[in-house]
């Protein structure tokens, strides 16, 4: 297995090296007119057509934001599904925590060094990644951003959830469930990451703009199940009249759920979560959690690989692929459409 992998990568490396050389001449023309940006699918043509011609499988490394988390595992499943359907080879890796910007950039560097046909990339810090993306662009490797956007027009497309809109929907549901007035709190999974910021702001903004009678009394941060549990208990202790709490990812949501249960506030506090995972699904089925927003992680992975292949082939790809989000609660949790995007 390992041997064949090495053989593959050596082969593709050699091939890619030859390609890079052969592509040099033709690229000079392309690069001249490339400053506009939108030309990347076109520019990638020469690098792409060759492996197809020689019968090599296309190689598309996917650099994610993590791999341990259930969410990323689901993205991986989607990516593998597309890879199998389209007969391309992918690798899927990501750093251990979402703070390890440097490690992720290293992975990106290594992936670029392998001279892949395209790259899928979920930037932890899109500004820090810019030099690498420039490099990808100059080597005519199409970049497909996923999960969160990159502040640059280098990526051919971005396959992601609109996190602000998703959290605004959570805010609407929260308002509905607590009857339009009262105190609520937010337990966000992280202070600085794009999803952390977007989900917090999307929720807070919606509440402030549309529901003047609802007051967000506290916003705390932890995506660690145990720490989120303890801080939820402290929030409930400090605000005995709290009517609802929104947890912005699986870890935060489970922490909120545990904290509410340990404080014996079951049923008195509306808990809204994000994403899925077995514990969250069970809580929603049993009614301990009012409901949650789910993204479509499998769709994110699938669309990323699909867009990468399209870009390699030089087809036009939409600049943004909205992979969608859904509200689910115990009434629709078993609907086909919802079931397909949930993971345990």
């Amino acid at each position: 297995m390992k041997k064949s992998l090495r053989a593959w990568s050596t082969a593709s490396l050699l091939l890619a090296g030859v390609l890079a050389l052969s592509a040099c001449g033709s690229n000079n023309n392309g690069n001249g007119g490339n400053n506009g940006g939108a030309a990347s699918p076109e520019a990638s043509k020469p690098a792409a057509s060759n492996p197809a011609a020689s019968g090599e499988k296309l190689y598309i490394p996917i650099i994610s934001k993590g791999f341990q988390h259930q969410f990323w595992q689901a993205v991986k499943i989607g990516a593998e599904k597309a890879a199998a359907e389209l007969n391309v080879e992918i690798t899927f890796e990501g750093p251990e925590t979402e703070e390890q910007v440097d490690k992720q950039l290293e992975m990106l560097q290594v992936a670029l060094d392998k001279k892949p046909d395209a790259i899928g990339f979920a930037a932890l810090d899109s500004k820090a990644a810019l030099p690498y993306l420039e490099k990808a662009k100059s080597s005519n490797i199409p970049v497909i951003a996923f999960d969160s956007g990159v502040d640059s027009d280098i990526p051919v497309t971005t396959a992601s959830t609109d996190n602000r809109a998703a959290s605004a929907l959570a805010a609407d549901k929260m308002a509905e469930l607590i009857g339009g007035s009262g105190e609520i709190a937010v337990v966000a999974h992280d202070q600085t990451s794009r999803t952390g910021v977007d989900r917090r702001e999307g929720f807070v903004k919606q509440i402030e703009e549309k529901y003047p009678d609802i007051k967000i009394v506290d916003i705390q941060y932890s995506g660690d199940h145990l720490k989120a549990t303890d801080l939820t208990k402290a929030i409930l202790q400090a605000h005995p009249n709290l009517k609802g709490i929104f947890g912005t990812n699986e870890g935060a949501a489970i922490g909120v759920l545990n904290g509410v249960a340990e404080s014996k506030m079951d049923g008195k506090v509306v808990v809204i979560g994000f994403d899925s995972g077995k514990a969250q699904l069970d809580a929603i089925r049993s009614g301990k959690m009012a409901g949650a927003i789910t993204q479509n992680p499998i769709g994110i992975g699938y669309e990323t690989v699909k867009a990468a292949v399209a870009a390699i082939k030089g087809e036009t790809v939409e600049k943004n692929i909205d992979t969608g989000f859904y509200w689910y609660d115990k009434n629709n949790i078993d609907d086909e459409q919802i079931k397909a995007v949930l993971y345990e």
Partner: peptide, 20 residues
Amino acid sequence: ASENFFQFSNIVGILLSTAV
């Protein structure tokens, strides 16, 4: 500083969060 701090439930909460 806060009347919500020195309550039985919170002290128990603190002890529990210390355990691990």
